[in-house]
Nucleic acid binder design. Structure first.
Length: 280
DNA sequence: CAAAATACCTGATCGC
DNA sequence: TGCGATCAGGTATTTT
């Protein structure tokens, strides 16, 4: 599932494939992917060119001429790829942007969870979802001081808190488990009970982990592919996700998989410390 | 208001 | 072989 590192990899691989191309036509095979009025969406895009692509958290911001931005979230399995207009539609292709040169950008999404919409550039932060995001984990605003203050306000476990995009944005289920293992924090620890000294380590591990994952081109667990069709290269560096019941790399005791707020969570009960609520 | 639960989706997997 | 049930999970929405 695309998290910050995968979305960043998509951004980097997609940009050279579509930069400066001019949109001639938009086809919506499954219109629900577009969150706003479908007719206006298609009409506004015709004649616009791709200027660049930015990213905030897990959102792609495709900058277009005419001060427009296509905000796109891949959710679970969204993918972009460049084809020719004549290439037959594949089973889960839902949106097509046909370019003036005869190539086409296809949006494919098995589960149809992804969403995109068009907004005037500069108004992205007014959209539902983006408007309440906490700082992107790889921006300067995400400091240790911020993390300590933010977690102090949360009355829930650390695993759920790291997945809460209003606290810090960019982490998903894979990297949340990975970073808690690296920082030696039990996923059921109370967010407001973890000492600041440990949160400094957690903060540094989040930044290091995401940078390492980007350097490796992201992680492919189920079906993630970047815009050039490549799988990620970070899988060998995963320590817990997908390794339930295998020995922990640090202590050799078996990793355990549990459910935390309906999310699969794998961790080492021996070397990840559980910080409990002080009132107990 | 914060936190928890549910809905949205389809494919893979499992038990019978 | 086939079929129903279960699981996977990011976020919007609903409920508590």
């Amino acid at each position: 599932m695309p998290e910050l590192a995968e979305v960043e990899t998509v951004r980097r691989t997609l940009l050279p494939l579509i930069q400066n191309k001019v949109i001639a036509k938009v086809i919506l095979w499954y219109p629900k992917i577009v969150a706003t009025d479908h007719t206006a969406f298609s009409h506004q895009l015709v004649g616009k060119s791709i200027v660049t692509i930015d990213r905030y958290a897990k959102f792609l911001e495709i900058r277009l001429s005419g001060h427009l931005t296509l905000v796109s979230h891949l959710r679970m399995e969204g993918k972009y790829r460049l084809t020719s207009q004549a290439t037959p539609k594949e089973k889960h292709d839902h949106v097509e942007f046909v370019f003036a040169d005869g190539t086409a950008l296809r949006y494919n999404d098995v589960r149809k969870f992804g969403r995109m919409q068009l907004v005037p550039t500069g108004q992205e932060r007014t959209l539902t979802g983006i408007n309440k995001l906490g700082p992107d984990a790889l921006t300067p605003a995400f400091t240790t001081k911020y993390l300590v203050a933010a977690l102090h306000k949360k009355k829930k476990n650390i695993k759920s808190t790291l997945l809460d995009q209003t606290v810090v944005s960019g982490l998903g289920n894979i990297y949340a488990d990975e970073v808690l293992w690296r920082a030696k924090i039990h996923p059921l620890s109370w967010a407001d009970s973890i000492p600041a000294s440990r949160l400094r380590i957690l903060h540094d591990d989040i930044v290091r982990l995401l940078k390492a994952a980007i350097a490796a081109g992201g992680t492919t667990v189920h079906s993630y592919l970047d815009a050039s069709g490549r799988t990620g290269g970070f899988q060998p560096q995963l320590k817990v996700y997908g390794h339930a019941e295998e020995p922990c790399e640090r202590c050799q005791r078996p990793l355990v998989k549990i459910k935390v707020n309906a999310r699969g969570t794998t961790f080492c009960p021996h070397c990840q410390k559980e910080y409990l609520c002080p009132s107990y």
